[in-house]
Amino acid sequence: MFDIAKYYEAKTLEDALSYLKANPDVRVIAGGTDVLLRIREGKISNAHLMGISFIFALKTITEDEQGNLHIGPMMTFTAIEENEIILKHIPILAEAVGAIGGPQIRNVATIGGNVCNGATSADSASSLFCLNARLKIQTADSSRLVPISEFYVGPGKVILQPGELVTDIIIEKKDYDGYTGTYKKFAQRSAMDIATIGCAVILKHDGKTISDIRIGLGVAAPTPIRCTDAENIGRGMTISPENIDAMAKATITNMRARDSWRGSKTFREHLVYELTKRAVKKLVGLPEEE
């Protein structure tokens, strides 16, 4: 039995927002793979929860007239992996969420929960950083758009205030159109494991030059980050193994890795260098390993 004192099932988005407004102590539960685990571990007790999994409006992926993508936060990882719009425009996200847990977890865990949980290890986060995703955050009375780079404020901490719900994840056409991307996860086991490092890279190139590149990292700092120093070196760079190597080395300046039982700071820095290099080489069609 989970220590849940009260459970409310929101029927619609409006219903959810007004319940949140009337009950400042309530905690949102999406797929529950983080929340129920924390209750199981005794980190949350006597919980008052509001379920949002019956709200259809939060479970769609659409492409609007401008070509911008809207990902409902209640989309499960399985649904994202199999979604045609995602596979056509941002397959990097399908690749990233496919690296999460096992199938039974991916069948219930959601992208909104992954992001809102605030973990630097969230496998979807680094790709969303690369794609300059923006989150629509709503209350019963207001709505704001926040770039994902401003959403994370510390380890396990996001900017969400009581009463707020993430209702849309938006990726603009200019941020994905013409880019190719890939996600590389290093974990101690090949499945069912939290990342030691997650590395997402998207770039545009013509075979000779990389015209634009974005690098997103998980577990390289207390929150997911972008490697702006390496990106600046990579933008406009002539494609060669030496240049890619030099750019990958520059990832270290943006990192604030820590020692943990999963890996030391030095190991993490080496992983980021190696994974960035391999990801870029793969995307420009060079052999990944020397």
Binding site: Y7, G32, T33, L36, P103, I105, N107, V108
Partner: peptide, 8 residues
């Protein structure tokens, strides 16, 4: 398939 131990 879902893990019913972690499903309300």
């Amino acid at each position: 398939a879902v893990d019913s131990c972690l499903y309300l």
